[in-house]
Design a protein around this nucleic acid. Structure first.
Lengths: 326, 326
DNA sequence: AAAGTCCTTGCAAACATTTGCAATGACTGC
DNA sequence: GCAGTCATTGCAAATGTTTGCAAGGACTTT
């Protein structure tokens, strides 16, 4: 039957007589018919579904404001455009299986923090539109990339601390992100910002244990300010400090990365580098959907500005015994 | 070809000669063949995909620890069982369209806070396995329900406050949840706990404005303790209090609902009723998957115990001018 | 040695939709 | 009035997989 045309082909150039259309609709209603989207996808090779490939669902990843914002931006876009979002773990699983280019998705959002070489290769060979969100530039040369200007964000953070008089400013990386941190623009941005001021960059690699922070605070030549790689790390440091009675910012200044709800509600309210995560996620998703529908984006790479939300966790440097009061 | 059997039918009783199987696999490899899951779903009428129907993606919903935990529990289960999770907005959209029983999902997790009558009816008529997570009992009589023992949670909260000497204990509901709050077991649990102690229950309906809280604190006969309906509300009240210099717990005690990461990192650390959200979500999902595979669960309704995590936001009642020191 | 049984394999139908093409019919312009 | 055009509609093929059935072949048992 040409029933298909009236029921599904909204904007086609093939027209149907109004009378016939009405009749068809009537019969369809009467029969309680509604289209089977699997059969439709089967034929049309389109599923109106995109996959989100992210490793952030594991453990505390999903518990961060970062990830919530990401998800919020993505779902807003997919809902608006009447797409479905499918959540996948990694592309390759232990056994073969895994999500491959098996027709389930029209496109993929790739937002991995920890990069797996085999998987990256696989995504590269995917015959699908792919947008990369928040992964280091150049990971997937053929994909459209959405990243924040981390270098500038770190420049802002260092500038802020330097202007308060800090000289010993360290960058703290968590093990969770260590694999990406290596070539990451946050580390290099931090280093550049330090070097350009004649300061010595120092990168610490910390676990989430409170004891680690406590030990560190005992060092006579410890830093007077810390910038964290992640929201989660800032959170644990704040907690550790609270637990052992270290005052932020009196004894040490702290700048987080990602200015989230947590920064507002923690005490002290946390100074943090901000990036427009939700907007980026929204834009990336919308771009993917356009890509799916054949539209080419204006650029291959979109860079978003970082900001600095100055709150209460940064102050004048703590004067240690080592550094005489000038 | 009977290639299908060797490639897909893992545990069938139809056997294939090892030699043939090897040959088939070889050819498949050579041809770069991999199965198309849409076609497979089309034929088998199974998609290995479940839908999550939740209104929590809107605005701040996705930003709560509650929702993060929910998602975490669900994805853990789906990943383990090699299912895909699809994220949907409401079942019915403004226009007809919407997600219907159109073959896309093998089952549905229903976790709406705001109940829409039309939609509830629709889910009820769905010819699919459905599990209900965190919605009031009895909303969908035919579905398996997973809820927390809210009554007991509120009993714990009231008991804790009463034992500290509080008599004026109010329950605060946010407008976001007001539609569900009416018949909700949290409200009734609170009321029961109060009445059983000879105390007068008072339910406030607050927006998220700081001014509202400020106004309230000026009332001479205000309550000495508040229990909030949600994590988000507790968060905004904590923030409001911080902003206008009201001390928690010195001037007012606060108990939140949902003991999340925020409760740990806020200052003061927040006393809160806990429910095993992630576990519930995990169990619900696993139950749904079993249901899909034909297994019947032991019960139709699973109730999880609530706990009370006592932290720093609750203390002795503030002595107002009205109440003479005894 | 023949018949029967069991293991293996190939064929073909079915799933619900889309889509191109062709056919029908009506209308318009010369 | 005839030819050509356009609007409409119906037919049929194709999509990739599953699955039941039947046929073929080898082996066993009497």
């Amino acid at each position: 039957m040409s029933v298909s045309k009236v029921l599904h082909d909204r904007g086609t150039n093939v027209r149907v007589a109004p009378a016939t259309a009405a009749r068809i609709r009537g019969v369809a209603e009467q029969l309680g018919y509604h289209p089977n989207s699997i059969a439709r996808s089967f034929r049309s090779r389109r599923t109106r579904t995109i996959g989100l490939l992210s490793d952030q669902f594991s453990m505390h990843g999903a518990q961060t404001g970062y990830f919530s914002s990401l998800l919020s931006g993505i779902t807003t876009a997919t809902f608006e455009q009447d797409y479905t979002l499918a959540i996948c773990p990694r592309l390759v699983r232990e056994q073969e299986g895994g999500m491959k280019d098996d027709g389930r998705f029209d496109g993929v959002i790739w937002s991995q923090l920890q990069l797996d070489e085999r998987e990256t290769h696989l995504v590269g060979t995917l015959q699908l539109p792919v947008v990369v969100l928040h992964s280091p530039k150049g990971v997937l040369p053929n994909a459209i990339t959405f990243i924040a200007d981390n270098e500038h964000g770190l420049e802002l953070a260092v500038e802020h601390l330097a202007s308060l008089g800090h000289k010993r400013i360290a960058f703290v990386v968590d093990p969770y992100n260590s694999r990406t941190a290596e070539g990451n623009s946050r580390v290099s941005g931090y280093q550049a910002a330090m070097v350009s001021r004649g300061l010595t960059p120092r990168v610490h690699r910390w676990d989430y244990h409170a004891t680690e922070f406590a030990e560190y605070m005992k060092c006579p030549n410890r830093d007077t300010a810390l910038i964290t790689f992640s929201e989660f790390l800032a959170r644990t440091i704040t907690q550790s400090a609270g637990a052992i009675g270290v005052s932020i910012p009196d004894e040490i200044s702290l700048v987080g990365f990602d200015s989230t709800a947590f920064c507002e509600t923690s005490r002290p309210r946390l100074t943090a580098v901000s990036q427009p995560i939700e907007q980026m996620a929204y834009d990336a998703t919308l771009t993917l959907l356009k890509l799916i529908e054949g539209e080419q984006p204006a650029r291959r790479s979109f860079v978003y500005p970082c900001g600095l939300d100055i709150r209460e966790s940064t102050g004048l440097p703590y004067l240690t015994a080592e550094v005489p009061i000038s």
